[in-house]
Amino acid sequence: MNLPTILRPRPMKYRSRQALYGYLFVLLWIIGFIVFTLVPLAETFRYSFSDVTVVATGVDVQFAQWKNYTRALLTDPTFVELILEYVIETLVSVPIILIFSMIIAMLLNLRFRFRGLFRTIFFLPVVITSGPVIRELVAQGATSAPQVARSEVVMEFLTRLPPYLRNPSEYLLTSFILILWFSGVQILIYLSSLQKIDPSVYEAAAIDGASAWEAFWKLTLPSLSTTNMVVAIYTIITLSHFSENKVVKYIYSQTYAVQGGIGYASAMSFLFFVALLLLLAIVYLFLKSRTDKA
């Protein structure tokens, strides 16, 4: 009997009313996206093809074709090297972070005392990781794998490796703890995904005679495939945006350089962006092919 009164005060169609309110809720974000992301992005893109000089009234932009890009890729010896280093270091770090955080999450998923304490420890670095703090810790040698990196055998071994293997291994040894420190959020994501797996699946597997080892490969890992992807993407982005990233630092230092300046820095930012997208694509395709096989 109430139905007609409910239906009556709806002059506007339900769907368009829905849409209107929906837009109102996200309006602020859309404006922000245009003003603070889209326009600056387009502007930076324009700068990257120009000679930009800062003058008193604003900026003077002179179209310069591909000059900045050719300089970054062909003449500047530092930039290409840094980009390659960044790509390699990220490709080394991501699997380590993924595996480490997965192992820690599985340990923390067990039933034992002081679980909360260990969780607190493994999440702590997230809270304190900032560029300058990391820089100080690295400078004082507090982040290398204790004792290992300094032992002479390792040094000797390293010098015999070809450079394309030596650099990543050296990076691994000197920043081992640092790499692990980037695992905090990832551990939490894995942990909550693990807790979502129905325990009865494991019971069924155990009754069918599956060992814990088999259960891990056939049950746990496949059900974490989406999580792997999320964690991998999150890790890549975090490592790339970190202010101690060498490419980021180089671009920043070039922004204020006399020669090239803003135009050159813009071109490098876009090349960096492309490298980041390539990295994401590589990791995405790799993880996807693994998932499809399983």
């Binding site: 849409a19 996206f33 600056p40 992005l41 930076t44 893109f45 700068y47 930012s269 960096f272 980041l276």
Partner: peptide, 25 residues
């Protein structure tokens, strides 16, 4: 509402885009 999917894509884009490409302007 229309364009919700696009909005999600843009949202993820803001997460991926390096700040370096927007900070100078």
């Amino acid at each position: 509402f229309r364009g919700k999917r696009l909005l999600f894509v843009l949202l993820l884009a803001t997460f991926v885009i390096p700040p370096q490409t927007t900070v100078i302007p």
